[in-house]
Amino acid sequence: MTTTVAAPAITAKERPGDRVFSTLTVVASSLILAVLAAVAIFLVAQSMPAFVAESDDFKGDATNFWSYVGPLVFGTVWSAALAMIFAVPLAIGVALFITHFAPRRIAQGLGYVVDLLAAVPSVVFGLWGIGVLAPALQPYYANLTEWFGWFPLFAGPVSGTGRTILTVAIVLAVMVLPIITAISREVFLQTPRLHEEAALALGATRWEMIRMAVLPFGRPGVISGAMLGLGRALGETMAVAMVLSPATIISFALVQSQNPTTIAANIALNFPEAHDVGVNILIATGLILFVITLGVNSIARYIVGRRKAFSGAN
């Protein structure tokens, strides 16, 4: 008569400390979600009056909110896109140099040097852009309009101060360069060693190896890094507010003294003096900026997340 006695299930003693601690962590995590929700809710609540504002509440000759925010959205996207044109190829080059061309021993130090750029506060970049970069570039802008003025982008009359959207784009490019570089560097380093060695063993030169093994592998990472940089460039405030000589126009011209300004810079410049519904209008433009950057960042995160799930390279 052997009966197998079911072993009594052992349950750990519930300790109050465990309860308290795990609850604390859950509360903190939920708080983050609550903060994000609060950001959205309060921005929406405060911007409601702007959507129904009368035409004389707006600065300039805008008649309703959408005609007010239109040029600002254009300026934001246009300056960020220009910055990307400079920053992405440069960042890919720098990341490749650090990962595959520089001597191994100093590569890490070089990476740190580029990261230093991220440590410079944006207001310092603003000072530098207006005090050093703009005057230095102005003569070249003059040449540009003189020689290529027939091309719409470089149409004259040239700005006398150099405080143009092209200067802003260069400053923005410098500011987002470390982000794109850091992420590209990470993914380039994750390229499977065997892919690289196989390419080299088949007689590929270093560039052919990079083109065949490193770049295809790193493409999603580079794209998401560029998107994150784009998000940063869209929301950058002080450098634009200080460097640009703004106007409420939609214009593709790069080197004129009348430049489309960005949402963030417009808020920073006008907020200290704003009152009544003017405040609500500025907050509403901030809401638009929030939505744009949220979209860009979500896409970037989605690309990163998808890649992590299927590549096994993490």
Binding site: L36, G235, I267, G286, R301
Partner: peptide
């Protein structure tokens, strides 16, 4: 939380300022 922490990294600094202002106002 992971996703929204990532999203939060991308909040433009000026929007964070506007949020604090909207909240306390």
């Amino acid at each position: 939380v992971t996703f929204f922490v990532d999203v939060m990294t991308g909040i433009p600094s000026i929007v964070a300022g506007l949020f604090a202002f909207a909240l306390f106002a």
